[in-house]
Design a protein around this nucleic acid. Sequence first.
DNA 1: GATGAATGAGGTTTCATTCAT
DNA 2: AATGAATGAAACCTCATTCAT
Lengths: 213, 213, 213, 213
Amino acid sequence: MTTTVPRQRRKDARPQELLDAALALFVEKGFAATRSEEIATRAGVAKGTLYRYYPSKDELFKAMVRENLSIHIAESAAQAAQYAGPIAGLLNEMMRAWWAKVGDGNAGVVCKIMMIEARHFPELARFYVDEVIQPSKALIGGLIERGIRSGEFRAVPVEATVHLLIAPMLHLLLHEHSFGEHDVCHQTMGAAELLDAQLSLLLHGLLAEPQGT
Amino acid sequence: MTTTVPRQRRKDARPQELLDAALALFVEKGFAATRSEEIATRAGVAKGTLYRYYPSKDELFKAMVRENLSIHIAESAAQAAQYAGPIAGLLNEMMRAWWAKVGDGNAGVVCKIMMIEARHFPELARFYVDEVIQPSKALIGGLIERGIRSGEFRAVPVEATVHLLIAPMLHLLLHEHSFGEHDVCHQTMGAAELLDAQLSLLLHGLLAEPQGT
Amino acid sequence: MTTTVPRQRRKDARPQELLDAALALFVEKGFAATRSEEIATRAGVAKGTLYRYYPSKDELFKAMVRENLSIHIAESAAQAAQYAGPIAGLLNEMMRAWWAKVGDGNAGVVCKIMMIEARHFPELARFYVDEVIQPSKALIGGLIERGIRSGEFRAVPVEATVHLLIAPMLHLLLHEHSFGEHDVCHQTMGAAELLDAQLSLLLHGLLAEPQGT
Amino acid sequence: MTTTVPRQRRKDARPQELLDAALALFVEKGFAATRSEEIATRAGVAKGTLYRYYPSKDELFKAMVRENLSIHIAESAAQAAQYAGPIAGLLNEMMRAWWAKVGDGNAGVVCKIMMIEARHFPELARFYVDEVIQPSKALIGGLIERGIRSGEFRAVPVEATVHLLIAPMLHLLLHEHSFGEHDVCHQTMGAAELLDAQLSLLLHGLLAEPQGT
DNA sequence: GATGAATGAGGTTTCATTCAT
DNA sequence: AATGAATGAAACCTCATTCAT
């Protein structure tokens, strides 16, 4: 019944297995409603084993969030600094890349979890704001400013524009995870098409082009 | 000692007082982390009294959500049907009205609560989708279609556009409630200005107008 | 089955009932080996009820000790100050009184419990030392000194003499509670006789009187 | 890295090292509050190793007590039988020897541990009573009787006198171990001086010699 | 009707013990 | 023989719910 996996091998894999199990359950039922035994069971170990790796459910939660937030913003930032062409194209690429990395995978649901539990884990919320939210906003905001300076963009208010670029994708994520079963919008509106539409709309506007000069 | 409120008056007000207390606590700490005694205390009654009005914490939760979601979409819909001018103006007005009604008040935080607890209260989630989300989308979607037919709008994909109109406001709401302490964006970007910027951007686009022909 | 005791009456009696149950169990099995549910059961209530009165097992323990240590040393001290006759007689009376109050009852076993758990409850140990041990020693020590000054006693070292007066009684207490079942010394040597013998011995010494002048 | 102790040497020493570690921890924190892993760690081995030498924590405890109680009373008894001079001097020597052997070292704290855990380990308590307490009492009691018969001592009650000789020293031991930090009596009253004072007092009595006939 | 004392199921965490390596 | 990863029984404590007053 038991496959012969060396003990050390198993031990090395345990922390990640526990974090994965925790992530799945936290997003499914929330932190408070998830019993620590469930996490252990889903990770294939007994209740007590969890506590060999994390000293408490709270600490497990924090580790899970931190571990999944190593989406290195810095990487994208460096990439953006080197880029020379039109900002619109860069934004398009970056958001698509973000969705590919975050939208579907673990990092995405961590956004939901983080939002839900922010009040309960203030230090973690601060960490998230400082390490994820602020850098992301700074990155996108910088690009908008570059676009405005180069004359590519209108002189729009930067902060609001950043929000307008980020919010729809994030909200889609949250919505899907919460109401996906009841509101099957992504069947008729896939993420890719939504992105296309969003960028197109944001870039060109909703209004029909003025007919004359 | 106690201010002299007629007994009957108090009793009639109880259910609403309990729901209000519950709302405040649920948004502050989440459903699971809020003790039923806290709700009672905040409503100015004893623990046992709560159970005279609602048979369980779950039912109290459902009542609280349902009660606060009687934002009558129908009303706005009727108003929209009569409206004759340019759709852009109507959208502008409607969203401003929505924010005034929902953004600051109880209904707004119920959106957050509903999103958080959707998996735990499936029937309630379905109710919310059917009674709030779908009608709202239908209303806005209908207006977009009208605008397209009348030539006021470009032939944009309707569903994505609706999402693009709704998501930023909703997300601002959630963000503020979760990270308001750590990410004080609304100090530099008030809701009103954000709305202005959003509508302007969505209507006219981010790109600078093509200079020549 | 249930006798109709008014609820309020029961509530008022609860703390004392719980402390009594705790005392009995702590002396029988020690603090760590006593389960909180046992205490509750012995007090005739359910597990949860205990926590309505004491916030934790530790706090219950501390309350139990403090409650049982209201042996007012001050009382004996005042009595001693007024006394005029020979100190030997006063000591005799006081020790007999102490045994009557402490030796058999709750306060006695608290001495044992306190000794056992002193390392685990340092603040409590300090309280015990400051409020019980030191005043007791001071009281007896003062009497010895009075006796020496008046010529009634030899010029013995005070501190050691105090210890010699106290230790045998206290040790008898501890011994009985620990080994009473196995070493049935008090069947052959009752407390009263032991006290007689002790005082007689301490006062007159073990050695036979020198025969001549 | 490790100092080069022959493997066999280490292995032979293990049981004693474990017992020493256990003794130190049991006296410091009590039996229940000492984790078996702590014992192993302090003995320089891993948790599992402990169980190669002792089948359970209970058995380890019993072994530790038994091992440390091999204060061979018999030895002193033989010595006493041969002794010819005044009993007072012999008692003096014996008690000083006892203190030197027991008072400071391991055997002393075992008295405390034994007293604390007597109810939890009844067979062990019986063993202690039979092998340590009773023989000790018999030894001292015999000497007292010899003294009385020879006219050296007054016709005191034997059992109480034995208690009076033993209790102060034992109690000093217990007291120091429990309240040493809070009640620093041995700074002003060393064990040696206490012994001097005790014997002197017990032998000669507290009262001043009657002046005249 | 209102209260809050009482309950006990259920959750988190600890730790003696086992056993694969 | 030694290790320490894993286990799960058992302890503490919480809190939704009941019910006597």
